[in-house]
Design a protein around this nucleic acid. Structure first.
Lengths: 200, 200
DNA sequence: TTTCATGGGACGTCGTTCGTCGCATACGGC
DNA sequence: GCCGTATGCGACGAACGACGTCCCATGAAA
């Protein structure tokens, strides 16, 4: 066939990412296949490998965009309010973002690199960015605490919110359905923060 | 070939489950394949389908055994202590159990039934059994609370513990490594329970 | 003319199905 | 009680249509 160039390299990249994202949001990671993506964009499977190293590379790119999207949502919510209100807003924003496209967000936890391969640096940095936002939101509540304590508090809160969302979405462990996750997250944040204030 | 009968039906079933469990604990769900299991037990792939309906059936059976194993661990820990001590013990038992074979436990969250298929009743019941243990452990702490409140409290605590374990194991979201999950879980339970007491 | 994006075949993998084969057992005749 | 045959059924393994990935001849763009 030869150079067709109906799309530039960047266009092709977006085409692939869009089709892949759509496939995953519809049927989860299992629905993603190089051949199906190629079919949908009207190229052959081999062409994907001119743009991405392999499917893992493609998937990691999508994961990166998901984290970026969450970070943007969190920023929108962090401009005003007391620390406690910010913490609540962060939890609610997480629920909102992840429940809009649960299959897509679940990608972050369904997908694992093959044994021995590590996530790239940029990926870990994006994740660190999320945690930093949580830390800076709650830091004013604990002015006398050491940074490690603040960090640990942020980790516990964040992991707790994630756990509720994750179990609710997967419908596992007898957690109420997704619309019930909101109250649980509020309850966790309010009660945990109350315990923090009292405990110190 | 014909009937070989070097193993009874039950022996064969155990053989298959053992080999599959080993494969998953070593390399995660991705390492499980009907052909590899058959290879390891010295049978042909087709034979697996005399014993299990398909791979999902096989996987669900392994998941069931995992939940049973956790339930047994929780029971061992629930015999003595104050409610608060029991709650802490439950969290620590969860961490201990899941961190012994992380890839295996992760199966519960990596594996999804194909679209449209629901988990069998016995599966949901096993999961309900776990939640009931948590509820009955913390119920004495909240004698004046309505059952729904106790249930919600158990859900929040349990999901929180799961979230910490999950993110620590997957090494995602900047949570400290696995050995660091213990302190985080303790912190969550102690602080959340303190907030509960104060809030009421 | 040179370059290089692209198509598409090839390889080895997978889950699953199913016709076939032959062992273990049950039964018949003696 | 024994032997030979018939039957039932467990296991095999080829076959099918998928999959990820690689590779290179091709032919359009530069």
């Amino acid at each position: 066939m030869g150079r067709r160039s109906s799309h530039t390299a960047e266009e092709l990249r977006e085409l692939i990412l869009d089709a892949s994202t759509m496939l995953i949001s519809e049927g989860g990671l299992a629905s993603l296949s190089a051949r199906e993506v190629a079919r949908r964009i009207g190229y052959s499977p081999g062409t994907l490998y001119n743009v991405f190293e392999n499917l893992d590379d493609l998937i990691l790119t999508i994961e990166g965009r998901l984290i970026d999207g969450l970070a943007a949502e969190l920023d929108q919510v962090l401009s005003i309010g007391s620390p406690k209100e910010k913490a609540l807003a962060l939890g609610r924003a997480y629920i909102k973002y992840t429940s809009e496209k649960p299959k897509l967000w679940n990608l972050l936890f369904e997908h694992h690199l093959p044994a021995g391969r590590e996530v790239p640096t940029w990926y870990q940095q994006k994740i660190d960015g999320i945690m930093e936002r949580v830390e800076s939101a709650i830091a004013p509540m604990m002015p006398d605490s050491k940074p490690e304590v603040i960090k640990r508090t942020a980790q516990v809160l964040w992991a707790g919110v994630h756990g509720i969302t994750s179990l609710a979405t997967a419908d596992k462990l007898s957690i109420a359905k997704s619309e019930g996750a909101g109250p649980l997250v509020d309850n966790l944040i309010i009660t945990y923060l109350a315990g923090l204030k009292q405990g110190s």
